[in-house]
Design a protein around this nucleic acid. Structure first.
Lengths: 236, 236
DNA sequence: CCGCCGCAGGTCCTATAGGATCTGAACATG
DNA sequence: CATGTTCAGATCCTATAGGACCTGCGGCGG
């Protein structure tokens, strides 16, 4: 088994990955996803297949495949013969619907995760909350990027800890939207102190082993997020 | 604005769709999805890109795009540089997880749908239950195909009736798996009489306007499905 | 008889070419 | 001035070509 060297690239990989070779479409997918998550692509902006291919210096074929995958996540939308566009900005109704969905799913995740929590996973969750507390919260995006990442990681870890592939899939279908909303929903991280306290409460409930308490703490957290966003968000 | 005539097709569309032209990749996607839903592609079977392209008489490019979309539904799985395979058979654990996820999502859907049920939607739901009762239940697949379709339609209509795009997405992520399990999970439609009664109960609760009752009826239905499947399914 | 090697076919992956369509702007006309 | 037309560029969509990799099979040496 030798390293992949699909194209010329005569200099070889820096310290080549031994296995799990990567396909160009995967690279394009991750690149586009990062652009969407980081807000480099604004809602409504067109995502040209040919243009992206030129920008990433690949052919349109892998870009087309990456975008086809992205479409199913709701981050981009496609119109036949017209191309892809970044999904439009969230309205208040969208936000209310998203929170309703989170309320249906995340407390269940917390309850299931609590029942089979392992020490190593608990450590990861604790680390996420610690990162949340330590993350800078400056005004520019670069400065609260780590905060958002830790927040998303906390919720995703709980979903994964359920051990239920379908609950993970259901959360993943929402997770990207949650992240996107944080960027463009009009509410910054003015609620950091409250949010950190709520995350800590969820973590405490989980480590106590009381499933119902964990579910309740998560439900309370989501409700509080909803309440603060409604209070802060500008009228649309 | 004129009709699409992408390829030769000199005879034109039978009664051409005025708008919403179709792209080859869409056609391939629907064709593959139908094959998966109908069980023509068995779990674990390889889905060759080139082979599918030859079979449908198109180039590999649209097939690749269609498969990229299908991957995100969980119906097929992809291994880099090795191709796509139909997702493997459900185990008992998979089934238990799927039912857990349904229990988290579908009662919420019933409650939300109940709160904003329109007469026309109620008529559609009633029709679905009627179709369920009238559908043949013979031993061969062709004979209970309509039964499965009506069953899936009933649940999907409720999800759509919530008016919540995220709950629809969450259900859709499960819907395909539910359908697939019905085909290969080892349990046929021996439970039709019970299932029909439960669907009727959900419908009655919905039309009564009692949201909590609707949610309870749906939860009961899912629990009963789980119970019957566990009783019927062979040990794996 | 058993293991190794080369080869052919199939498959995946990417790039490229070319036809069809959309978009926007310049231009002509009432 | 308003409106319709034309045209060029960009874009989408599909087909095709070719390189890299895997797999199975027949032949050869031990």
């Amino acid at each position: 088994m030798q390293l992949a060297s699909t194209a010329g690239s005569p200099e070889g990989r820096p310290s080549g990955r031994p296995v799990s070779r990567q396909v160009l479409a995967d690279h394009v997918y991750e690149e586009l996803l990062a652009s969407l998550m980081d807000g480099r692509l604004e809602p409504g902006a067109a995502v040209s297949i040919d243009g992206t291919a030129r920008e990433l210096d690949v052919s349109p074929t892998p870009v087309r495949e990456a975008l086809a995958r992205l479409e199913h996540t709701g981050m981009v939308r496609r119109v036949a013969l017209k191309g892809y566009r970044v999904a439009p900005v969230f309205t208040r109704e969208d936000f209310a619907e998203l929170m309703e969905a989170r309320l249906a799913i995340e407390p269940v995740n917390a309850r299931l995760a609590c029942a089979r929590l392992t020490p190593s996973r608990l450590a990861e969750l604790t680390q996420a909350v610690t990162d949340l507390k330590d993350a800078p919260r400056g005004p520019t995006f670069a400065e609260f990027r780590d905060y958002l990442e830790a927040d998303e990681r906390f919720h995703r870890l709980i979903a994964e800890q359920t051990g239920n592939q379908f609950m993970v899939a259901a959360y993943a279908a929402l997770g990207g939207q949650i992240q996107r909303f944080r960027l463009f929903g009009g509410v910054g991280i003015t609620d950091a102190d409250h949010a950190i306290a709520e995350h800590q409460a969820v973590l405490d409930a989980l480590s106590s082993g009381d499933s119902e308490k964990a579910a309740a703490a998560m439900a309370e957290h989501v409700r509080m997020v909803r309440g603060r966003a409604i209070a802060d968000a500008p009228a649309d």
